[in-house]
Design a protein around this nucleic acid. Sequence first.
DNA 1: TTTGCTTTGTAACCTTTGTTACAAAATGGT
DNA 2: ACCATTTTGTAACAAAGGTTACAAAGCAAA
Lengths: 209, 209
Amino acid sequence: MNLDNLQHVFEPKLVTEMQQFGTWQSFKEGDLIMDYGKYIRMMPVILKGTVKVLRMDENGNEILLYYLSSNESCSMAYSCCVEAKKSEVRAIAEDDVELIAIPHVKLDDWLCQYTSWRNYIMRGFNERFIELLKSIESIAFHKLDDRLVAYLKDKQRLTGSSVIKASHYLIADELATSRVVISRLLKQLENSKKIILYRNEIKLLPSFV
Amino acid sequence: MNLDNLQHVFEPKLVTEMQQFGTWQSFKEGDLIMDYGKYIRMMPVILKGTVKVLRMDENGNEILLYYLSSNESCSMAYSCCVEAKKSEVRAIAEDDVELIAIPHVKLDDWLCQYTSWRNYIMRGFNERFIELLKSIESIAFHKLDDRLVAYLKDKQRLTGSSVIKASHYLIADELATSRVVISRLLKQLENSKKIILYRNEIKLLPSFV
DNA sequence: TTTGCTTTGTAACCTTTGTTACAAAATGGT
DNA sequence: ACCATTTTGTAACAAAGGTTACAAAGCAAA
């Protein structure tokens, strides 16, 4: 397995340990990486690709928590992992994903031994916090049209492409609204020459930024 | 300082260390415990009382993050503290508060040394996560009237009293809406005999539950 | 008691978002 | 080419929430 990218984040000795004790896994687009109720025994560190993390509430509403990409890991997993709890989240591969799964017995050891690991974990918690806070702010204070624009920009940044592949239905789902509303707002954006709509595809024009 | 309650959470040796290295602090209702932009060098562990934690976004909107009560601590503080960053949150004493402030140099040491501390920190992160998720779910999927009812029940649980002391304006603020809207909804609840309204006071009737 | 400030009540109106219903277009398999 | 399925467009309407404006009530200090 290729852990070159990790060298920039962790000290060499830790990378060697990760190689030794971790399990390399790969997933194809759409694959289910983690699901509700499954026991978590490993903590994932993403090497390549993007992972979408979702959560369902008591009423069956599913909500997008955040996206994880290279060198990030699922903070929610950590404490679940240590306490051998069941997953409260679902993780899906957005594109082709490679990750290295760290067995839970190593988590605590490394926390003591390696400053880089400790910082990595703590920074992860913090970043995830900030993401959730932004999410709250977005829902609480911004109207749907702004949120939609932010959503599209996010996708653009994440995929590195100005062509976003998604159906209106999917977008509606992730913004917790209905398809008709999204179609309406997208059409407004198209009319103001900021995007062009195709089937399953949205092209962001220069004037979009 | 009286750290009896901590005995139930931490091993005796750690409690002794907390006594030795921590700083005992007390605050009166309304006191500012932590504010935006101040450097965080200590991590608070609440001994008594309730702390309200807020955050402000780029547009100056302030949002309620969560309440902390006995034996809880501010997860947001942790990583800030370790990296000696400025606070992104404001913390206000809801009632009379006692806390013990742990100097940041001890945080990492204890993480290695004491399993109870490690679990405490990790569980804290997790609980805060869950709170934020609930908050997101509430805003995203529930209408204001439901959220208002949930808010009142929360206050009731937190204070242990069926009489909630708060102006409509304050409630509106914490639910990120306008005073008129809250007055309207409260009046509906009063009309359906679930609450009685007074000035700066709301009495929850038995039928409210 | 008078004055000024805060809190609450209420009406009227506007904007945003959600819902239902139906049609048209695109796509993929046979 | 034909059919079933998915995706998108649009209209018409309903509901929730936000805004403005003003009045009345409560409270506190002078």
